[in-house]
Structures are given as C-alpha cells and as structure tokens.
Amino acid sequence: MMESLEPLLAEHPFLKGLDPRHTQIITGCASNVRFDTGQIIFREGEEANQFYIIRQGKVALQIYTPGRGSIIIDTLTEGEVLGWSWLIPPYQWRFDAVASELTRAIALDGKCLRNKCEADHDLGYELLKRFSSIVDQRLESTRIRLLDIYDSNP
C-alpha cells in the first residue's frame, strides 16, 4: 500500500517538487481514505491529528451557529489541502469538515509528522512554507468575501 502512495503524493500540487527524501518521510505517515457524501471528516473541537490531501471530490468547511444552522465557510476540492490545525497548538479543529460528495484523499498523520518535523527542520521549514502559502490564499479569499462585493447596497 505504502509503495503506491509515494508517487501519488509526489505528484500532488501540494507536495510537488519536494525533496524525494522528504516525500519518503511523509509517505511514512500517509494512508488512503475515502468519505461518502455527507460523511463527517472531523468536527469542531476534536483533536486535530491529521490533514488531508484531496485527490477527488469536495469537502465543505462548516461552522454551526444556533438559529442559523450550519454555515459553509469554504469548500475544498481536488488538488487542495484540508486542515492545518494539526500544526498549531492546541491541535484542535476549529470547523466541521463534511464531504459534500464522494471524496478520496490521502490522510497524513499529524502527530507523526510533527515529530519528524522537529527532528528534521529542513522538512519542517519546507512544509511550513507550503502551508503558509495556503493560509495566504485562504486569507485573501476570506478578505475579499468580507468586502461583500456583490451587495447591491455597499
């Protein structure tokens, strides 16, 4: 199983161009996962010990507010990465993640990776750079939406 994951990971946009040595380390923490439509991937408040590299499908990040129900904050699809709470203490999910359609992904064990990053700062730095770029994109997207640019009475 592990042998087949390495090339998948190496080709994913998130890990593309990574030192093969590092890809190998990461593969050691990886496993294939599948979520059916409506299946909950994680819930707000739960311990965040993984992140997911989405290969196919769509995931909705949601937050539940009393009275309004679940509000979708963001959706993630093929080629994108779900979750960074495993990187930042207290390692707890801030949102719910629900598969909006059949989703296939590679789950990476955050606890395992955290240790490996501590041991190998080159790997840690490389991963952090890639995550900051994702954080940057999501922040930009959020900021634009904050402007409510389509409102007819701005």
């Binding site: 909705a60 129900g69 509000i71 979708i72 963001d74 959706t75 930009e140 939406r145």
Partner: peptide
C-alpha cells in the same frame, strides 16, 4: 461567498 450547510456547491471567492 456564503451558504448554509445544505448547499452542495462551492463556497469561496471566484478567483479560487
């Protein structure tokens, strides 16, 4: 830009 949980489409800015 925003949707309730029963929305099956994308949420996010168009540039994404």
């Amino acid at each position: 830009d925003r949707a309730a949980g029963d929305w099956h489409g994308n949420v996010g800015v168009v540039t994404t």
